[in-house]
Design a protein around this nucleic acid. Structure first.
Lengths: 237, 237
DNA sequence: CAGTGGTCTAGACCACACA
DNA sequence: GTGTGGTCTAGACCACTGC
């Protein structure tokens, strides 16, 4: 038995999950229909539906209208990482945060940048480049492009107090996006700005976020490999 | 307007999301109660509840019994990565997959390993170390510990056909777990086994999964930084 | 056609927070 | 107490699948 099921919905959830983990229900096999579970548990159909819909949303089941409910193929678990804000990271660890601005400007977007943002020719763009420091020690290098349409006040932000991340979160809360995580060798610039040893590995996170159809921001964060790890959980939320 | 809302639930979702993204609803502010939205949209309470519960599960809203429904604080987006199986990765890319076993044994667990697995003294453990190859080229180094209690047949698996990941997925589907992603410098062993240039950065993924209270497996995967990226999406699922 | 899941209704009882 | 969200019921109509 897995959960302490106090509700009828919880009972059904637990029943299904137990039968999967115990092997009684194989991947891709069909589970009883809502009507059958209704009779089995003596509950209304809405209750059964709610339990199964929840499990489907969590990726445990796959439901097909007109066909039935099936155990999802495992093999592609979901790993969740909290998207990080270097400024918050430092503060959460109790460090004395400060930022060293390298670039903060409005300029013409390059072809590649216009492509990322889906902008027309001669579009303008905001560009921030900065080093985040904890107690004077560099912990991350941020290189960020911002869409002026979405965050018109970006250049006026006082980055010593509010981070770019926080400001953009208020302009465009709950964005969608994509990201790439990779290990790279530190460039000469990285070595200088992050005070690294030459050739030291860095963890790079490249992230593009958008809301509706407007790309909000594109950012590359580079962390010293020796001092930074990305932690997360594997879950069915 | 954000979604093409064809259902009443979708209408309510879209209404709430629009009012958040447009700034009409600030973070932490209260949104109308289920009864108020019921009257506003002319729908039953279950429909309103379903829409709001969904948004709460996605992290957009925070609901407190007896108090009300509030806009969640943004600032901690969720990034989702698909947990990867090197064997599946290679096959998905159309490469000719093969595996080179380095170690596959049952042995006494070390103190550190017993601590990870929560095992008693003198416990036994399975240990797999292998290089995954695509068309003869090394793409990943796997170093895996397995709990014999959960996967007693692990040593009998034919790893040329089924991957460790797939076998464990069938023993313990939908596990929970945690993981750490980091950039490391290739060790001498890595250089040899993965045919790297000395000092080349590697992406390392360390993952521990468990089901109920049993730790199932602990694995370290090491990828050449020049050839591997971890991609994912930022989302409210 | 019968069976399935997706959605919706108009009620209900409960546990909780606040005044 | 009132108002809130969490859960549940016993129906209903619909769109879809496979036969």
């Amino acid at each position: 038995m897995s959960d302490i099921a106090t509700t009828r919905k919880g009972e059904i959830r637990a029943w299904v999950l137990d039968r999967i983990t115990s092997g009684a229900l194989e991947p891709s096999s069909r589970i009883p229909s809502e009507h059958q579970l209704m009779a089995l548990f003596g509950v209304s159909r809405m209750t059964v539906h709610s339990a199964l819909a929840e499990l489907a949303k969590e990726g445990v089941l796959r439901r097909v209208k007109g066909l039935g409910t099936f155990v999802a193929r495992p093999g592609s678990h979901l790993t969740v990482v909290h998207v990080t804000d270097p400024a918050e990271d430092v503060r959460a660890r109790g460090g004395a945060y400060n930022i060293e601005l390298i670039t903060l400007e409005e300029r013409d977007a390059t072809d590649a940048e216009r492509h990322i943002f889906g902008m027309a020719q001669h579009a303008r763009i905001y560009h921030l480049k900065a080093v985040h420091k904890s107690g004077g020690v560099a912990v991350a290098l941020e290189d960020r492009l911002v869409n002026p349409t979405v965050a018109p006040d970006f250049l006026k932000v006082d980055f010593t107090g509010a981070s770019a991340f926080a400001h953009l979160s208020s302009c465009a809360p709950f964005p969608e996006g994509g990201h790439v995580i990779r290990a790279v060798q530190a460039s000469a610039t990285d070595v200088k700005l992050l005070s690294l040893k030459p050739g030291e590995p860095c963890l790079e996170i490249e992230r593009t976020t958008w809301i509706e159809t407007s790309v909000v921001t594109h950012v590359k964060l580079r962390y010293p490999g020796s001092a930074y790890e990305l932690k997360g959980a594997i879950s069915r939320p």
